[in-house]
Computed example of a mutant assay.
Amino acid sequence: MADKSTFTADEWALLLESVMMAGIAVTAAEPSGLWGMMKEGLASSTALLQAKSDGANPLVKALVADFETSEGRTAARDGLQAKLKGAKAADMKARCIETLQQARTTVEVKAPDDAAAFTAWLYQISQRVAEAAKEGGFLGFGGVAVSDAEKATLSEISAALKIA
């Protein structure tokens, strides 16, 4: 069972970043306005809280526990700022997906027994963010639950995480 001690400081920071990037990729694919972005952000946070309370994989629980510390949040925030600084939405999405792929590779090498649960969890975060706010409606009416751009991004995330 992997935990923070299994990884170098840089690798652990990458894993923390990947948790945030899983949701940001979907939001960048089709920004939903202020309310939509708030709903999508809450969906990502809810996934963290749920992993804490359910029977999540030990690596996932270790990541969630680190987000509860100022050190963990700072590492994730600093990594996000460094990787996404100055990026436009399309470039931001590509950088997020690249980070997810790097995180998957890192876990496959360092903690292969945890890789499937870790990547499934990241994908679940992306899926929840995609479903959090309707796209293309007006004042909450109409629109679709998951837009074509979000579906395409979910497909790219699935490929990056090697989820069948």
Rank of each mutant, 00 (worst) to 15 (best):
L49P: 01
L49Y: 01
Q50N: 12
Q50K: 14
A51F: 11
A51C: 15
A51D: 08
K52H: 14
K52R: 15
K52F: 14
S53N: 04
S53I: 07
S53D: 05
S53T: 05
D54M: 09
D54S: 14
D54N: 13
G55K: 13
G55M: 10
G55C: 11
A56I: 01
A56H: 04
A56C: 06
N57P: 08
L59K: 12
L59W: 02
L59H: 12
L59G: 15
V60K: 10
V60Q: 12
K61M: 14
K61I: 13
K61Q: 14
A62V: 12
A62R: 11
L63D: 03
V64F: 07
V64I: 14
A65R: 12
D66M: 09
D66T: 05
E68D: 10
T69E: 09
T69G: 12
S70Y: 04
E71A: 15
E71S: 09
G72I: 06
G72F: 07
R73K: 10
R73C: 08
R73Q: 14
T74E: 13
T74M: 15
T74K: 11
T74P: 06
A75D: 05
A75S: 09
A76S: 13
A76G: 06
A76W: 02
R77Y: 13
R77F: 15
D78R: 10
D78E: 13
D78I: 02
D78L: 12
G79D: 05
G79V: 09
L80S: 07
Q81L: 06
Q81R: 05
A82I: 07
K83D: 02
K83A: 08
K83T: 02
L84P: 01
K85Q: 00
G86L: 13
A87S: 09
A87H: 04
K88L: 10
A89Y: 00
A90M: 01
A90L: 07
D91Q: 15
M92I: 03
M92N: 12
K93Q: 15
K93L: 15
K93A: 15
A94F: 00
A94P: 04
A94H: 00
A94W: 00
A94G: 04
A94K: 05
R95A: 12
R95F: 04
R95Y: 01
C96W: 02
E98A: 15
T99Y: 01
T99S: 06
L100P: 01
L100F: 01
L100R: 00
Q102V: 03
A103N: 09
A103Q: 04
R104H: 06
R104M: 07
T105G: 03
V107L: 14
E108I: 02
